[in-house]
Design a protein around this nucleic acid. Structure first.
Lengths: 143, 143
DNA sequence: GCTTTAAATCGTAATCATTTCGATTGACAA
DNA sequence: TTGTCAATCGAAATGATTACGATTTAAAGC
């Protein structure tokens, strides 16, 4: 609650408005702070309080929160994008549970460990994610 | 041509048919063996020879070739999936040029360099790709 | 070569996530 | 309290991909 207030203040400072819908979205991410949620998850949740909520609002809110570095986006295969509360400013990677969507942070970055010829290639971005099952979800459903 | 023949023979051995459309698709991947192509690229190309080609055929052909490990699929952001000729049996990663779609192979795998607690997490998969611009495309269009 | 038949293909519609848009509402600065 | 523009709504559009009933065709067997 204090936390969501803080986040919404931050939005306000960067020239955006404080709305009830945004508060609900932020609260949801805080509640599930160690999980990835889909746009649909968020939509269904907000719908409980605002039955007339539109996907337009959901996607713009997600884009805004992402742009403000308050949430992170992740894609896996051709499934819908998933979002979670930003876990901090430092660069990091994730262990993503395919069962429950929970994540663990990996601090090591392969870009610092790997050797590539940067004269031959200008790196602008990289992607590194590890998928599997957390201890709760066990060893099931191997793919 | 010898190569495409070889690939189509391999398909045949696993119980699939040799069709003119499949040959054209395979030839295309051989011609652009160092680039990623979208389903649409493939569709447009086949359309030249078979104007009535359907996307159904393109996607099933891509799925078949992928299933037979003849091509590899890659996704970047919310753009369309891209495909390229399989570069071999060994595990590897890619430098992907955001300009022209060409790729370079990286033999090092971060999973061998990084330290994670495998008692706490059962790894089933990982993803590691480096995006940027090749020497031909230069340093432009940073994102 | 001719028949057979299941795989492959066609044409088109459906699906699903996401985006767009004109009209309306509402937050908040003055 | 009011004016303005961001935010939202409702609904349709988009773009990639998939699905499906009808038709065609590769290739195995005669």
């Amino acid at each position: 609650m204090a936390k969501s207030q803080e986040i919404l203040e931050q939005l306000k400072e960067s020239g955006h408005r404080f709305t009830g819908k945004r508060k609900i979205v932020v609260d949801l991410f805080i509640e599930y702070k160690d999980k990835y949620l889909t746009a649909k998850d968020v939509y269904e949740h907000v719908k409980k309080s605002y039955p007339s909520i539109s996907y337009d609002t959901i996607y713009r809110t997600l884009a805004l929160l992402k742009q403000e570095n308050l949430i992170e986006e992740m894609e896996y295969g051709d499934e819908a994008s998933r979002y979670r509360l930003s876990c901090g400013q430092g660069h990091h990677h994730h262990l993503v549970c395919l069962g429950c969507g929970s994540i663990k942070v990996v601090k090591d970055c392969p870009m610092e460990l790997i050797n590539i010829d940067r004269d031959d290639f200008t790196v602008v971005n990289h992607r590194f994610e590890i998928f599997g099952y957390c201890s709760t979800c066990g060893h099931s459903n191997k793919s």
